[in-house]
C-alpha cells in the first residue's frame, strides 16, 4: 500500500509531523522574548523590529517583535484541526443525506434550487449569514460569547457545504445503483440496506477519500477568504492605538494561519516578507493536500483500469 501511493503517505506523515510539532513545541518552549531593539557595541548598529530572518529569529519578526517561526508553529494546529473538523463533519452529514434522500437530490426541481450554491460562492453565503452576528466595531462588544461564536461559525461553515456535497454523493450513488450487478441483486430480492452496504459502499469509499481531500483544500481557501473580512474562527480582537478608527487592528484569538495572513495584510506594501511568510506556509499546506489528493485519485483510477 505504502509503495503504491508514496506521495500520499509522504504528505500524510508531513501533516502529522507538523501537527505534532505544533502541539509539542508551545508546551516545551515558551514564546521567545520580544526585543525592542538590537544593539551591538562593536558595530554600533541599532536595529528595531521588524527584524529580517537571522539566527535567533529563523523567519524574522513582525512589527511588534514577535518571532514569526514560533507563531507559525503554534498556529498550525488550529488551522489544520479546524479544517479537519469542518471537512469530516461535512462529508459525514452529506453521505447520510445523500444516501437517504437520493431521490430528492436527483429530482430536477431540487437540483435547480440547489443551483444557487453554484452561483453564490460559499464565502459570500457564510459572510451574509454571520455578518449580523459577528461584525462589530471597536467601541461595541460582540453580541455572542466565544463558545457561541465558535459554535455558530462551525455550524454555518459545515452547513454551507453539505447540500452541494450531498448532491455529488447522491449522483454517484445513483450512477452506481444503475450497474448490472445492483440490478441483479435487486431482482434476487436483496433489501435496499444490503445493496447499499454490500454493493454501493465499497465503490463509494475510494471516491469519498478523494472528496475529503478536495473538500479540505476548499475549506482552507474558504477560511482564508473569510479571514480577509476579519471573520476568524474563534472570534476577533479589535484594538486601536489612535483616537480615530482608521487604523483599527484586527487579530484572531489564536495564531491561526489565515488569521495571521489577514492581520499582517497591511504590511504588504511596507515589509512584504512579514505577510509572505504565513502566505507561503499556507500555500504549501494547500499544495501538499492537493498533491496528496491527486496521487490518491491517480491510484484509484489505475486500480479501476487494471480491473
Amino acid at each position: 500500500m505504502l509503495s503504491k501511493i508514496p506521495l500520499f503517505f509522504t504528505g500524510f506523515f508531513l501533516l502529522l509531523f507538523i501537527l505534532a510539532a505544533s502541539i509539542v513545541v508551545p508546551l516545551a518552549f515558551s514564546e521567545p522574548e520580544v526585543n525592542q531593539f538590537r544593539y551591538s557595541d562593536s558595530l554600533k548598529k541599532l536595529d528595531i523590529p521588524p527584524y529580517s530572518p537571522s539566527k535567533e529569529n529563523w523567519l524574522g519578526t513582525d512589527r511588534i517583535g514577535k518571532d514569526l517561526f514560533y507563531i507559525l508553529v503554534d498556529g498550525a494546529k488550529y488551522t489544520i484541526l479546524f479544517a479537519c473538523i469542518i471537512t469530516l463533519a461535512r462529508i459525514l452529514i452529506s453521505v447520510i443525506l445523500g444516501l437517504f434522500f437520493k431521490r430528492l437530490f436527483n429530482s430536477s426541481w431540487f437540483s435547480d434550487l440547489i443551483q444557487s450554491f453554484q452561483y453564490v460562492p460559499p464565502s459570500l453565503i457564510v459572510l451574509l449569514t454571520l455578518s449580523p452576528f459577528l461584525f462589530y466595531e471597536l467601541r461595541n462588544e460582540s453580541v455572542l460569547s466565544t463558545s457561541e461564536t465558535l459554535f455558530l461559525q462551525l455550524l454555518v461553515l459545515i452547513a454551507v457545504g453539505v447540500l452541494p456535497l450531498g448532491k455529488i454523493i447522491a449522483e454517484t450513488t445513483e450512477l452506481l445503483s444503475r450497474t448490472d450487478y445492483v440490478i441483479c441483486a435487486k431482482l434476487m430480492g436483496a433489501s435496499s440496506f444490503q445493496i447499499t452496504a454490500k454493493h454501493i459502499f465499497p465503490h463509494l469509499w475510494p471516491r469519498l477519500f478523494v472528496l475529503v481531500g478536495r473538500q479540505f483544500a476548499q475549506v482552507l481557501t474558504l477560511m482564508l477568504h473569510l479571514a480577509i473580512y476579519h471573520l476568524f474562527i474563534g472570534g476577533v480582537q479589535i484594538t486601536s492605538g489612535q483616537e480615530h478608527d482608521q487604523f483599527n487592528h484586527y487579530a484572531s484569538v489564536s495564531n491561526e494561519w489565515t488569521g495571521l495572513i489577514s492581520a499582517y495584510h497591511k504590511e504588504l506594501m511596507l515589509e512584504p516578507f512579514i505577510v509572505m511568510v504565513p502566505v507561503t506556509a499556507f500555500a504549501l499546506l494547500v499544495l501538499c493536500i492537493n498533491i496528496m489528493t491527486k496521487d490518491l485519485e491517480q491510484h484509484f483510477k489505475n486500480r479501476f483500469l487494471s480491473k
Binding site: L113, S116, I125, L128, T129, P132, F133
Partner: peptide
Amino acid sequence: LLSIGVVLLSATPSLFA
C-alpha cells in the same frame, strides 16, 4: 428556482437571530 434559492440564502440570518 435559482432566484428562490438566492432569496432563501439571503434570509438565513433570521434562522438564528
